[in-house]
Nucleic acid binder design. Structure first.
Lengths: 229, 229
DNA sequence: TGAAAAAACGAGCGAGCGCTCGATTTATTA
DNA sequence: TAATAAATCGAGCGCTCGCTCGTTTTTTCA
């Protein structure tokens, strides 16, 4: 099993694949005609944006620095987006789209068992945020500077994720597998544990904790807190 | 028992008190002579900085907007700091100083029992971050744009907090109260649960969860995960 | 009350920002 | 290979930024 396969079981989360999806989503605002040219340059732009933004913040990243890092001129950049804010929206859209698609994709046999379902959700979230780490860090750190509609969507997306967890927890409580007073509150506590993986990545890297090990450790911690172990 | 007393048992966490401590810490760089004038204006500056920064980010806050919000002129601001970055460092210093001081102040009878000590640490962290919420949000959100020395200190401060939790956990394991394979890993998972309180405050406010209720809920969740309940 | 000290003012500075657009290079095709 | 289309270039525009400093207002106290 290849590492990519293992880390991102459902879908292709490479930069190129992301660039292709973004190109499709914003085709009418991107002036460059030939898809292979557009995808290649867009990949470079995304890579450079994530690198510069995650170091100093999106706001502090100048388009001149971005142009140089991406190997384009100032004017060249504007063939791929119509303003700095659009670049932000492109990346955010890719993150929430990937998360929403993946977390709803649990196989039926997994859904059948609340414990298995919960473990699956945790593992998938950790592995997805591992495969798309710079994207997730970006979306998390820049959330407050999103334009209003994008911020609303981000909040809704986060609430939807939490609702998925809450549903699984409630189901487990109904079946007597989980012993929890307030499933909604417990669901609210799961999200920050998942976010810590990509937000504080250097900490875990320094300790040699892999994505799989983190997912297993967090699963164990949460299941014990839910009275399932 | 007054709410302030209940929420912040050790020390005064009002804006004025913070301004006084900051004035003491930066006396030689603040041009205004009379302490009561300096503290009053500094309070206004702090309040306005936290308000504007936590809405749009420190970098995006202009000093012209800050001056207006604080009731001073552009030139007037520079009697209180020698540059925008110093303002950031002032606030960061106040946060880490408050956290370090408080968390080391556990009474002996609390320290004697790992469960009580852990509960005390959780409650104090939640209540402190409640009393100084805008400060904590600021420090958390702007961490990546700190100047290098301040960032190092912030990371060290976070590691120190985690080490306190790890020590209590190890002690509990040694006494057979906690059943945990890896106390360091478990300690790493506690921090994000404490941070969620102030980072995602609107979420909990909407649900009517008070600081005390959050501290109790998180304590319960963690103690169950540690096998102590 | 009036002169000295303290505090606050705000127009103006150089720099860097996002963004534009006519000129130029590169790729395509008859 | 010449003509056309596609892609890229980068100096320049208007604007806002952090910051300065000579001036004005306020406070202090003999």
């Amino acid at each position: 099993m290849s590492p990519e396969k293992r880390l991102a079981p459902y879908g292709d989360y490479s930069l190129q694949a992301a660039a292709e999806r973004i190109l499709t989503r914003h085709r009418d605002h991107i002036r460059t005609q030939k898809p292979h040219v557009a995808v290649a340059k867009l990949s470079k732009i995304l890579e450079a944006t994530l690198k510069l933004s995650n170091r100093q913040g999106f706001q502090a990243m100048s388009l001149r620095d971005l142009a140089e890092a991406a190997g384009l001129s100032m004017g060249g950049l504007y063939s791929y987006f119509d303003g700095k804010e659009t670049l932000l929206v492109m990346i955010l859209g890719e993150v929430s789209s990937a998360a929403e698609t993946l977390l709803e994709a649990a196989p039926d046999d997994v859904r059948a068992d609340p414990v298995a379902h919960l473990e699956w959700l945790i593992a998938m979230h950790v592995l997805l945020s591992e495969a798309m780490q710079p994207f997730f860090v970006f979306a998390y750190m820049e959330a407050k500077s999103f334009p209003a509609p994008a911020r609303k969507r981000a909040i809704a997306s986060e609430a939807a994720t939490e609702a998925i967890f809450a549903r699984v927890l409630a189901e487990g409580v109904a079946r007597g597998v989980f012993k929890v007073d307030d499933p909604d509150f417990a669901a609210a506590l799961i999200k920050p544990l998942l976010q810590d993986w990509y937000v504080k990545r250097p900490k875990y890297a320094k300790r040699g904790v892999s994505a799989e090990a983190y997912a297993a450790g967090v699963s164990d911690f949460i299941l014990k807190a839910l009275g399932a172990r």
